[in-house]
Amino acid sequence: MALVEVRNLVKHFERGGGLLRAKTVVKAVDDVSFSVEEGETFALVGESGSGKSTTGRCMLRLVEPTSGEVRFRGENVLGFSSARMRAARRDMQMVFQDPYSSLNPRMRAFTIVEEPLVIHGIGTRTGRRSRVADLFQLVGLDPAHLDRYPHEFSGGQRQRIGLARALALNPSFIIADEPVSALDVSIQAQVINLLMDLQEQLKLTYLFIAHDLRLVRHISSRVAVMYLGRIVEMGKTAEIFENAQHAYTKALLSAVPAPDPDAPRARIELDPALVNHDAPLRRIAEGHFAAV
């Protein structure tokens, strides 16, 4: 069953506009639809400006979409009152890209992770302390470091703090926006392993937003490729990687440098002029769609 369903999501940003100049509209997210099944990892991939992060933010209403629907367990969260939305966010959390700027440098790690519990009025002071200690353990941090400040942790550890905070309210759905792209290679693998362990242990559903195709191939069951605000191809991960149909997907896959000096280099260049931007998603195979 689909845990989350996004239907015809649109987010337009108006730009400029002055006394004599007309406003221009940037279609950051332009009629995007997909669904995320319970327990799976669904990846949104694309390059900067493709609209993948804005899509994620719209789903949690961190930015208000222009139109469309985001159904969570069947209910359209875009119609929720702000009080209802706040309650709904207990079940839908976000992990951000930059573990340096997403944690308040003046707050101790304990306070950062405790904050969602306080906001939602959960537990007593002492109860929260032990809950946060448990969360620390869960994400592989030493509970002895509860009272340290973010700068006393390494990048990988900071991302674990962000993850502990996201898990504090026992969510079932987590949007991870480039969760490891700011980390060193040797640390990335640790955090990815942790994400996969937690998913199994806590029965989490992930929306994984990333530009690293190697990582996406490893972690996700299904992939949607975004290009200029639209999903141009979507399907099972293996299917997308082995049988890409859209010119942009092909170009993107061929651009990833292989960590092997003897790998054949067959770069496919994208000619933007040849992309029909209005082509609807067409069924290629079971569960595989492409805008060709």
């Binding site: 290679v185 040797s186 640390i187 693998a189 640790q190 990815i192 392993n193 996969m196 190697r214 990582l215 191939r217 490893h218 972690i219 991960t237 293996a238 960590p259």
Partner: peptide, 12 residues
């Protein structure tokens, strides 16, 4: 580097 079997643990 991710690249092996999908869903397997990475060798961190």
């Amino acid at each position: 580097i991710p690249g092996g079997g999908a869903g397997s643990r990475l060798k961190a």
